[in-house]
Amino acid sequence: MSSALSMSSAVSKSSVSVVIPCYRYGRFLPDCVRSVLDEQPGLDVRVLIIDDASPDDSAAVARRLAAEDPRIEVRVHDANRGHIATYNEGLLDWAKGDYTVLLSADDRLVPGALLRAAALLDAHPEVGFCYGRPLHFRHGGPLPPARTRSSGSRVYPGRWWLERRFREGTGCITSPEVVVRTSLQRAVGGYDPALPHAGDIEMWMRLAAHADVGYVRGADQAYYRVHGANMSRTDFGGQLDDLRQRRAAYDAVLDRCAERLPGAGGLALLAHTRLARYALRRAYRAYDRGRTAEVPVDELVAFARDCLPLTGAVERLPEYRALRLRRRIGPRAMPYLQPLLLSPVRDRAREWLWWQSWKRRGL
């Protein structure tokens, strides 16, 4: 009993800085802030809302919330600076707590999420950041029931976790479920302005190159809102941009953290191979769906070749063989014959989740 009380006391002393960037999301702010300040007991929590020159009433809503609660600060930009600059302003210039959270104004935390994350980080000083399972919910509908009782935690060696990201070629994090050790965030720096659509996965990998990674088991940690504003980029050219941004993110990590990542060439090959396969998959699926007039098939193949420039490397991939067969059949007949063909597609669910979150970041 005494050890449990001691742990509770230690956790209660932890402080968390929550940065809430906001652009045109004033209508979501009250619920977002409520989930941070009213549903996270046992912690010293402070909130900074940064309105990036929203044309709606976001600034007024933020100021009203701050007037009602001294734990809230507000900054309002005179001109729009973009999401990366806004993130970095809060994370690097303002955050002073033991731990830091970057939470979009249209998302929210699950009750007790910060306490569960703080307990993990308090118990494992070698962990640089932790995350858990996010719940996706559709705007306008009810919140899905959340699990709030953790079944424990897991700590992954940072290098192992990072290598898995390279091997899979996708992120496994949506974003609002992450809690970062503030000292590490300051040590590695902010988000990269050159990666507006893949800066998050680059950040998680950069953090993992410097520290271990924690995972909250059993409980849900955040709600990710799915609505029209974060599903607006559905063009297939955007999907090609997604792949380019992903490759740039992996290459940036290898460049910035080379001294911490022996065997960087092998990691690069893992990521480039996976991204080439994703590109070819999107190319051959265009034939399956009768969308070769919309999907930039030739550009996707060119991207795959650029990822794997060695002669014959692309041709040995199963996705390329699938594409070659579909080209022989032709775009008109292929949608009718597709059910008869075996597909080499794997990891569809993981890539779909990445694509949904990338469309959100593409705003």
Score class of each variant (00 low, 15 high):
Asp57Leu: 05
Tyr99Ile: 02
Glu39Gly: 12
Leu109Trp: 01
Ser232Gly: 15
Val61Thr: 15
Gln40Asn: 12
Pro193Phe: 08
Arg165Tyr: 08
Asp347Tyr: 12
Leu323Gln: 02
Glu73Arg: 14
Arg246Tyr: 04
Pro125Arg: 10
Gln40Arg: 05
Ala264Asp: 07
Phe137Met: 10
Ala113Cys: 05
Ala59Asn: 11
Val76Trp: 01
Pro41Phe: 00
Phe137Gly: 00
Arg63Asn: 10
Phe236Arg: 11
Ala209Pro: 15
Gly265Ser: 15
Ile84Cys: 14
Phe236Ser: 13
Leu323Phe: 08
Val18Gly: 01
Arg277Pro: 01
Ala117Thr: 04
Val18Gln: 03
Ala293Met: 03
Pro196Tyr: 05
Trp358Lys: 03
Ala105Gln: 07
Tyr99Cys: 00
Gly214Asp: 02
Ala198Tyr: 04
Arg246Gly: 00
Ile20Gln: 02
Arg277Met: 02
Leu207Thr: 08
Val127Gln: 04
Arg361Asn: 14
Arg181Asn: 05
Leu261Ile: 15
Pro176Val: 11
Arg159Lys: 07
Leu342Val: 09
Tyr23Lys: 14
Gly190Met: 01
Pro70Phe: 09
Pro196His: 04
Ala349Asp: 11
Val297Phe: 06
Gly228Asn: 10
Pro142Gly: 09
Gly218His: 07
Asp52His: 04
Ala4Gln: 15
Ala276Trp: 02
Arg133Asn: 04
Leu353Asp: 11
Thr292Lys: 00
Val18Trp: 01
Pro339His: 10
Asp192Asn: 14
Gly82Val: 10
Ser357Phe: 02
Leu270Thr: 13
Arg316Trp: 01
Arg305Lys: 11
Arg360Trp: 08
Arg316Gly: 14
His272Cys: 02
Gly26Lys: 06
Arg116Cys: 07
Leu103Met: 10
His272Asp: 12
Val45Gln: 05
Ile50Asn: 03
Arg34Val: 07
Met7Cys: 09
Val301Tyr: 02
Pro339Lys: 11
Asp56Cys: 15
